[in-house]
């Protein structure tokens, strides 16, 4: 059963044009012109109950706009959008009880009061029964190890601690969907790890669907089995993480240590990219043969001491995806 249905959604913004210079400023006292900008263009996907989906794309790709539409903050310009069976902005209040939303850097916490007060207020806003509030808070406090700073004023918290508080808060009313806009941005490695682990637990054990935007591929690898990639408002990939890797990450790096320098080597499928005499590094492009075949063929001909195969990391897979998209666009522009 799908809890989010996005069908042909487009969002355009209107922006006022500024006229440059002193004369322009006098001019804009009298006239106003605007330009339309498309942040999200004809995007469709659906997300099932219990899924964890990473929504990623470069800056300005329209990630936040999409999250804002799904949470009912913004209304699509066209297309249809249903979350939990409702049109989000029409059933804003009703949906908000079933949703948790974490907006990365934009805190809603009470800066000068102990963390506990912010949680306490949440109880009133969502009208939670004391028992439910308690047990959920205890669950989060333990898994996110928050007990040490529960009574500290928010302003004294580190960024990582604050983010943990925000995430815990978004889960107190037991939402069915959790939206996170860049939850790990600016955090150190340990804090990132803890948050990832927690989100995975929430997804797996509490069956909360998760939709998160991020720039950090490791977030996606750790939490999400599926990812949606957008670029300049367009959906460019929707599928599993491993599938994208297979599709694009067809390069592998093979480093071979020889007993002695064999000189120039000609092997089909392997391209030499670094030559240190006895240690040579090749780039392997997946084709009809496998990397093992290539290496064993090599070992039969030359004195191979050791070989290591390195798979491309997901970051460079994504980088490649973006580069391809840029390339395509440039070609299109040149033709047009």
């Amino acid at each position: 059963m799908s809890i989010i249905e996005v069908d042909g959604v487009t969002k355009t913004y209107r922006q006022y044009k500024r006229f440059p210079g002193l004369l322009g400023s006098v001019r804009s006292l009298f006239t106003r012109q605007y330009v339309e900008e498309t942040a999200v263009r004809d995007i469709s996907f659906s997300i099932g109950e219990g899924e964890a989906v990473g929504y990623l794309g470069p800056n300005g790709a329209g990630k936040s706009t999409m999250i804002k539409m799904m949470t009912g903050i913004l209304v699509p310009t066209s297309g249809s959008l249903r979350v939990l069976g409702n049109i989000p902005h029409e059933k804003r209040k009703q949906n908000s009880r079933e949703m948790g939303v974490v907006f990365g850097q934009r805190s809603q916490l009470w800066w000068d009061l102990p963390v506990m007060d912010s949680f306490d207020l949440h109880k009133y806003v969502y009208r939670l029964p004391e028992s439910q509030f308690r047990s959920n808070l205890d669950f989060c406090t333990e898994l996110l190890s928050m007990s040490s700073f529960m009574q500290k004023p928010v302003r004294q918290l580190s960024l990582g601690q604050r983010m943990r508080v925000e995430i815990a808060m978004s889960l107190l009313h037991e939402p069915r969907i959790l939206f996170l806009d860049e939850p790990t941005i600016g955090l150190d490695v340990i804090a990132k790890d803890q948050i990832r682990q927690f989100l995975r637990t929430v997804n797996e054990e509490k069956k909360v669907s998760i939709i998160l935007t991020t720039h950090d591929m490791k977030d996606i690898e750790a939490i999400c089995s599926r990812m949606i990639v957008v670029n300049k408002g367009n959906l460019v990939y929707d599928g599993s993480v491993s599938h994208l890797r297979n599709q694009l990450g067809n390069e592998q790096r093979v480093t071979i240590d020889f007993r002695f320098d064999p000189g120039t080597i000609e092997t089909p499928g392997l391209t030499l990219i670094q030559d240190n005499g006895v240690r040579k590094t090749f780039l392997f492009e997946r084709s009809h043969t496998t990397v093992f075949e290539c290496v064993s063929r090599l070992a039969a001909q030359y004195p191979v001491e050791d070989a290591s195969i390195e798979t491309e990391d997901i970051d460079s897979v994504i980088r490649k995806l973006y580069q391809q998209l840029d390339q395509k666009e440039r070609e299109r522009r040149e033709i047009g």
Binding site: T71, G72, I73, R92, S96, V101, F103, R106, V125
Partner: peptide, 17 residues
């Protein structure tokens, strides 16, 4: 700066809140 958004995802009347 978008802090208003957090208000719109709460189950309350945004003006009154």
């Amino acid at each position: 700066n978008g802090t208003l958004d957090a208000l719109l995802v709460k189950p309350v009347n945004p003006y009154l809140y």
